[in-house]
Amino acid sequence: MILDIKKLETGYGKLRVLRGVDLSVGRESVGLFGPNGAGKTTLINAIMGMVRPWAGSIEFEGAPIGGRPTHLVARAGIALVPQERELFPGMSVADNLELGAAYVPRGRDIIEKQLDTVLSLFPILKERYRQLVGTMSGGQQRMVAIGRALMANPILLILDEPSLGLQPSIVAEVFDRLSVLKKDVAILVTEQNVRESLRAIDRGYVIENGRVLLEDTAEGLAKNPHVVSAYLGL
């Protein structure tokens, strides 16, 4: 397993958010679904070292990473596309992409290969290469955010609600790209837009009230009565 989480408990102050979460990601694309406040972003924060685990373990490629500083988690090979894009608006697309690779120990040849990958995956970024990110549309900014994360040549790519705030046609485009990406990189994606994301994942978890309620393949989840009624609106 690339990422192996066992009985993870954590929260903020006295508020317990995660109550013993078990989750694993292999060389595949995994979805994490649940309503607002279920603990999806907290789980990502715990993986990225932004929140300290209270109990349980987080292992990445067999090594414990729970509580490690975020920059070391990133250098180990986990790249995050945060919920609020969190790009650098005053910097160009080129600078944002360069930044994604600048502080992780990767060779120059790998960086150049990743840049080719990103620009072929999102051709619009090639056209807007020198444009300031703050002047781009929400969808284009999302592409920059994913591109920046890919520049680090990650082993695991985590996307926190990539469809948030995007129009449906752009959402479909983003998930199309993720379907392509999953051949080369392990993906963990949290989403509320379950319908679109089921197209791009191999397996998924449903998390509610800080606990894993369901775990199944994409096909299994699409047929599950709870998922159908609560997340697919059928």
């Binding site: 990225m48 932004m50 500083p69 975020t70 920059h71 990133a74 250098r75 790249a79 995050l80 945060p82 969190e86 790009l87 650098f88 608006p89 005053g90 910097m91 600078d95 360069e98 930044l99 994604g100 600048a102 502080y103 992780v104 920046r148 680090a152």
Partner: peptide, 24 residues
């Protein structure tokens, strides 16, 4: 140098800078 990107990233958003591997 690389300092420019690091300092600009820190100025813009520390969380994002950290998740890009920058030791703030």
């Amino acid at each position: 140098s690389k300092l420019r990107l690091a300092l600009t990233a820190i100025r813009n958003d520390e969380t994002s800078a950290r998740s890009n591997g920058i030791d703030i």
